[in-house]
C-alpha cells in the first residue's frame, strides 16, 4: 500500500487508501483532515504559526495561517465536502525546554495557531497528542481516518 511522507512545510493528500506519514515532529505540528464518507485525507506539517512578511513565496503548508485554508482546498479537490471534514493534530512540543522558560514556546504557539485557524474554518478537532517535551511521528490511514502517534520510549497512541 502506498505511503507518502510529508516533509516540513508540505501538504499531501490521498483518496480511498494508503498512509500519509510524517516523522520528526518537534515544535512543528502535524495536522490531518479527513472526510470519512469520501475517504479523502490530507496531511500538513506546519513549521511556524504565522507567515513572515519576508517569506511571501513560501510553501502554503509552512505556516499555520496559510496551511489550514490550503489543506481544505486540497481536500475539496479530491472530492471531500467541507462540513464533513474532521481534523487531528500532533506535535507542538518544546524539546529545548530550558531555553526561554518564561516565554511561550514555538511549539505551543504553533498549537494555538492551528486550533485558531481550524476553528475559524469550522473544522472540528477530533483527536490530538500535543505539546510536552518529546518528538513525535504521525501515521494517518486514509482508509479509515485513524492516526497513530509514536514517540521514543512511549507506547504508540491512536488519536
Amino acid at each position: 500500500m502506498v505511503e507518502v511522507f510529508v516533509n516540513m512545510g508540505q501538504i499531501r493528500a490521498l483518496k480511498t487508501e494508503g498512509f500519509l506519514t510524517t516523522v520528526g515532529l518537534g515544535s512543528c505540528v502535524g495536522v490531518t483532515m479527513y472526510d470519512a464518507q469520501a475517504k479523502v485525507g490530507v496531511m500538513g506539517h506546519i513549521f511556524l504559526p504565522k507567515q513572515r512578511p519576508n517569506d511571501r513565496d513560501a510553501l502554503p503548508g509552512k505556516y499555520a495561517d496559510t496551511a489550514i485554508p490550503a489543506m481544505i482546498q486540497e481536500a475539496l479537490k479530491l472530492g471531500a465536502v467541507k462540513h464533513r471534514l474532521e481534523a487531528k493534530m500532533a506535535g507542538g512540543a518544546n524539546l529545548f525546554s530550558n531555553l526561554n522558560p518564561n516565554s511561550i514556546s514555538i511549539g505551543e504557539q504553533n498549537v494555538i495557531a492551528v486550533r485558531e485557524h481550524l476553528q475559524a474554518a469550522g473544522v472540528p478537532i477530533t483527536g490530538q497528542a500535543v505539546q510536552g517535551s518529546h518528538g513525535r511521528k504521525m501515521r494517518f490511514s486514509v482508509a479509515d481516518g485513524s492516526v497513530t502517534v509514536t514517540a521514543i520510549g512511549k507506547t504508540p497512541v491512536r488519536i
Binding site: 520528526g24 519576508n54 529545548f96 531555553l99 514555538i106
Partner: peptide, 26 residues
C-alpha cells in the same frame, strides 16, 4: 552564547526544533 539547551530525541524532531528556534525562512 545563551545557556545550552539539550534534547535527546528523534533526529528529525531535534533538527526541526533547531530550525524553528532559528526561525529560518527561505
Amino acid at each position: 552564547p545563551s545557556i545550552p539547551a539539550l534534547a535527546i530525541d528523534m533526529a528529525g524532531a531535534v533538527w526541526q526544533s533547531v530550525l524553528a528556534g532559528a526561525e529560518v525562512t527561505s
